[in-house]
Design a protein around this nucleic acid. Structure first.
Lengths: 150, 150
DNA sequence: CATGATTCGTTCGCTACCTAGCGAATATTG
DNA sequence: CAATATTCGCTAGGTAGCGAACGAATCATG
């Protein structure tokens, strides 16, 4: 929202938005041949790298709301790429794991780390650290604001 | 997506995402009593500050796709907060302006600039500038990547 | 041990984005 | 001037994310 750039504060927020959407656009374009969304890729990525995971833990790891993850998981189950089983200990929990075909697909998928490499590669380490620190601080303050609204 | 923090590069992208959604959450919470979404607010804001605007120009100013804006505009027209008229010069264009009730509502709305003030206030100017520069560079590189995919 | 609070996953309904494709209007070019 | 290309707004269909509300399971407390 370009006109909001009357001060650096608006500008920072606007660039955070643009950066997020630009990154997602690249992921979407890359994953299009595989009929996968960015979030679906993250789920497969986690299961491939960390093995079977309880849905709650997956949500916390990927920082997704239960409702959001629920929908993504349902989609992947429908595609038979992941499996959703009862967890032994807690009957409320669902244990997620890759199916055989999910594992096969995962091996075919391109490595997506090149996206961040392209985006932030060559940027000064100190500047990158500053950026992360500023965004982190802003996010925390915003989350506090939401809490206070309630 | 916290586990992606094996390098600052993933982390920066993840924080950009969180920052964007946190900001939107505050806007949504603030605007809830008025039954308005964040994007709807931006449209009203622009019309209140810049007067009647052609839909195409509004889309460019707010950096929204035609399709996205089309839906938002339809919603606001349905609420009778804005008006959509034929533009004199070009018969394809639609001129948008606040209705009387839209103007009344706008005056009631709280000032939302406090959100960015809260989020980025007190942060060192140089750090803020660095953040903007890094995000801007990353966004441009990502957009180039998308172009190449095509 | 019974009651109440919390947690987990689901569903519903919403906003906000996108791409693709359409028809109509306008610009460009041979 | 006719044919072609572009632009503008709309619609359809998709993903991503949220909050609220719900049943079932579990935990905490009197």
């Amino acid at each position: 929202m370009r006109e909001q750039i009357d001060s650096g504060k608006q500008s920072a927020a606007a660039w955070a938005k643009r950066c997020y959407f630009a990154g997602r656009a690249v992921m979407d374009a890359t994953l299009r041949p595989y009929d996968l969304g960015a979030t679906q890729w993250y789920v497969l990525w986690h299961l491939a790298n960390f093995g079977p995971t309880v849905q709650r833990d997956l949500g916390r790891a990927l920082e997704l709301e239960r409702a959001t993850l629920s929908g993504v998981v349902a989609t992947l189950v429908r595609k038979r790429l992941i499996r959703q089983e009862a967890s032994g200990e807690d009957q409320r929990q669902r244990l997620l794991s890759l199916t055989a075909s999910g594992d096969v697909l995962w091996r075919e998928l391109p490595d997506l780390t090149f996206i961040q490499q392209t985006a932030f590669g060559g940027i000064d380490d100190a500047d990158l650290a500053t950026t992360i620190r500023v965004l982190q601080a802003a996010t925390e303050r915003l989350q506090d604001l939401v809490q206070k609204e309630k």
